[in-house]
Simulated assay, not measured.
Amino acid sequence: MHETPGYHHVTKVEAFDQLVFLAGQCPLDSAGDLAAGGLEGQTSQVIRNILVALGSAQARPEDVVRTVIYVVSADREELSAVWTQLNESPLAPAFTTASTLLGVAQLGFPGQLVEIDVTAAL
């Protein structure tokens, strides 16, 4: 298999007490407003939302076993910028597991540019 830019092709979890499935985390703030700042600002909000959601389940980024990252873009530089931002954030350990990064045509909210689906094992 080819070398990866930090993630693993396979993540095996041998023992766990619980699986934690986060709904796709969107770039909405606590008031339900879309984060400002374009793709970078929205990615920052998604990171914050994931950290809060993981914390509510007593999980940490190190407990994440799978991520799927959706970015509204066909531009590889924009996809790469999101990947870099994620891996330079406090959430970075989550992206060393089985991770998929996808460029998509559209997401659920008007103006939404990024969404991340997360699974953790405790």
Rank of each mutant, 00 (worst) to 15 (best):
P93M: 01
S73C: 07
Q85L: 08
A105I: 07
F95K: 10
V104W: 11
Q106G: 12
T97M: 12
S73K: 05
A105G: 13
V65Q: 07
V82S: 03
T119Y: 01
V82Q: 04
A98N: 15
G103M: 10
V71N: 05
G108I: 14
A92V: 00
S89Y: 06
T97H: 15
Y70F: 15
P90N: 03
S89M: 05
V104Q: 09
S89D: 11
A120W: 00
G103L: 05
L79E: 04
P90L: 01
S99I: 09
P93A: 02
V72R: 12
P93D: 04
V114T: 08
T96R: 05
A92P: 00
L79Q: 09
E77W: 01
A98I: 11
W83I: 02
V64G: 08
I69H: 02
I69Y: 04
G108L: 15
A98H: 15
V65I: 13
A94F: 04
L86P: 04
S99P: 06
S99A: 14
V68C: 09
Q85F: 02
A81K: 02
I116H: 02
A98S: 15
T96N: 09
N87T: 11
T67R: 01
L113R: 12
F95A: 14
G103C: 09
L79M: 11
T100M: 14
S89K: 05
V104F: 13
A74N: 14
A74E: 14
G111F: 09
Q85W: 04
L107S: 08
A105Q: 15
L113V: 07
F109Q: 15
E88I: 08
A120K: 00
F95E: 13
S73D: 03
V114A: 11
E88W: 08
V68I: 10
Q85A: 06
S73G: 05
P110N: 14
R66M: 14
A120F: 00
T100V: 14
A92G: 00
L91R: 00
Q106R: 15
G103W: 09
L79R: 07
V104D: 10
P110Y: 13
T119S: 03
P90W: 06
T96F: 09
V118L: 02
S99G: 10
S99Q: 11
S99K: 08
V118G: 00
R76M: 05
I116S: 03
V72H: 12
E77R: 02
V68H: 12
P90Y: 01
A74Q: 15
A105Y: 12
V114I: 13
A92K: 00
L107N: 09
V72P: 07
S99V: 10
D63M: 04
S99N: 12
L102I: 10
S89I: 01
L101E: 04
Q85K: 06
Q106A: 14
V71P: 00
G111I: 11
T97P: 01
L86A: 12
R76K: 09
L101T: 11
